[in-house]
């Protein structure tokens, strides 16, 4: 068991042990092969998500998709954003300071 569903309304699952490329996980009865490494604490799509969809964790909205994601795809900064305050990575902090 490498994924946990925190709330029945959630459309993402939390990775509870690091996943390597080629690992398979079962999501909603479907076998999904992991394309790239995903570390503990990160999120995978529980079902296909469209740009603009709200992302639910703990049964609460935690932001919106900016791009579509397939079931089992990593959901993170590259395809999701805050509905409140933009998130900064070390790269965007550098760009901002440049």
């Amino acid at each position: 068991m490498k994924l946990v569903l925190l709330h029945p309304d959630d459309n993402i699952l939390i990775v509870t042990a690091a996943l390597a490329p080629g690992d398979t996980v079962e999501i909603e009865g479907q076998n999904v092969t992991i394309g790239k490494a995903v570390d503990i604490g990160h999120k995978l799509a529980r079902r296909p998500l469209q740009a603009g969809d709200k992302v639910y964790r703990y049964g609460a909205p935690i932001g919106s998709m900016t791009q579509a994601a397939q079931t089992g795809e990593h959901v993170h900064l590259h395809n999701m954003k805050s509905d409140y305050i933009p998130t900064h990575s070390r790269d965007t902090v550098e760009q901002r300071n440049a």
């Binding site: 503990i40 999120k43 609460a60 805050s82 509905d83």
Partner: peptide
């Protein structure tokens, strides 16, 4: 211009301030 959110939070899988 920044939330209460460090780059390490994102590396650890948190994507947004509300999460």
């Amino acid at each position: 211009g920044f939330g209460s959110f460090a780059p390490g939070n994102a590396e650890g899988g948190l994507t947004t301030q509300e999460e």
